[in-house]
Amino acid sequence: MSDLHFEVRDGIAQIILNRPNAMNAFSEEMLDLWIDALQTVRDSNDIRVVIVKGNGKGFCAGGDMKEMGAGRGFYRSDEDRVTTGLARKNSLWKKVQRIPLLLEEIDQPVIAQINGAAFGAGLDMALMCDIRIAAEGAKLSESYTKVGLVPGDGAAYFLPRIVGIDKALDMLWTAKVLTANEAKEMGLVTFVIADDELEGFTENYAKKLANGPQTAIRFIKRAVYQNQTMSLRSSLDMISSFMAITTELEDHREGVKAVTEKRKPKFQ
């Protein structure tokens, strides 16, 4: 069985981390398959929504400490048996850091379905998603300092943008473990759902987005993220272009007609 499953049904893609006996900690195979899956999503016109989740009792425990301790996955090549700083940097760039860069290119909504533990880089993979839906029993932690590491995959970028600089530093410095409700209180997760309802809630949320007006949904995502680094003038110029495009589409005409006829639009 592969370390990651990728499947698409009714326009909804699922990226399922599949190392349950290791709490879905990253392996080199998992990262390679994850990168392939995200490239497929990015280039597809048929995939409308993506769900990222873990198989078994946890979402993702981050990097596999056994592999890291043995130096596996950080060599320059299969023949190289000297782990160096440069080799490790290059390994991060070619593997785990490809994931946030690919996610930045994806216009479709990406949902993290968090069950059990989301620790270290596992939590950071959830932060890279657009929506985070956590089970009540989930535990979340930026656990890097427990093993004397810095967050190498983007936590220093994503976390302060979500919870603020002070809360991000507190989480990163202390490696505290948060409950799902504590994480929601600080804005780290979007929804907290009963453990036995997590799967159904996430699927229904994804279906709602998959049935929505796709161009408008993707333009909204693009506008929200690009606005983080744009001036007001540039933002308004961009959004007026998006408005000009969407008003020409059938989804807009159907939506207006549905409002006037006091019914649901056909795309819902």
Rank of each mutant, 00 (worst) to 15 (best):
D3Y: 13
E7W: 15
V8P: 11
D10C: 07
G11K: 13
G11C: 07
Q14G: 02
L17P: 12
N18S: 15
R19C: 15
P20A: 07
N21E: 14
A22G: 05
F26R: 09
E28N: 13
E28G: 14
L31C: 00
W34G: 03
L38E: 01
Q39S: 09
T40R: 15
V41H: 04
V41Y: 01
V41G: 05
V41R: 03
S44F: 01
N45P: 00
D46S: 02
F59V: 01
C60Y: 07
G62Q: 06
M68T: 15
R72Q: 14
Y75K: 10
Y75N: 12
R76S: 10
S77Q: 07
E79C: 07
T84Y: 12
G85S: 05
G85Q: 10
L86H: 15
K95F: 12
I99G: 04
L101N: 11
E104P: 01
P109S: 08
P109I: 05
Q113C: 03
N115F: 07
L123S: 09
L123G: 13
D124E: 13
D124V: 15
I131Y: 14
A134C: 11
A138R: 10
S141V: 10
E142Q: 15
Y144H: 12
A156R: 13
R161H: 11
G164R: 06
I165W: 05
I165D: 08
D166H: 06
K167P: 02
D170H: 10
D170C: 01
M171N: 00
L172N: 08
W173S: 04
E182P: 08
G187N: 02
V189T: 06
V192L: 05
F201C: 05
N204E: 12
N204S: 14
A206H: 06
L209M: 13
Q214I: 02
T215P: 00
A216I: 08
K221T: 00
Y225R: 11
L232P: 04
S234T: 14
S235P: 03
D237Y: 08
I239T: 12
S240F: 13
S240P: 00
E248A: 07
D251H: 09
E254A: 10
G255N: 05
G255P: 13
V259L: 12
R263H: 10
R263D: 02
K266E: 06
F267Q: 00
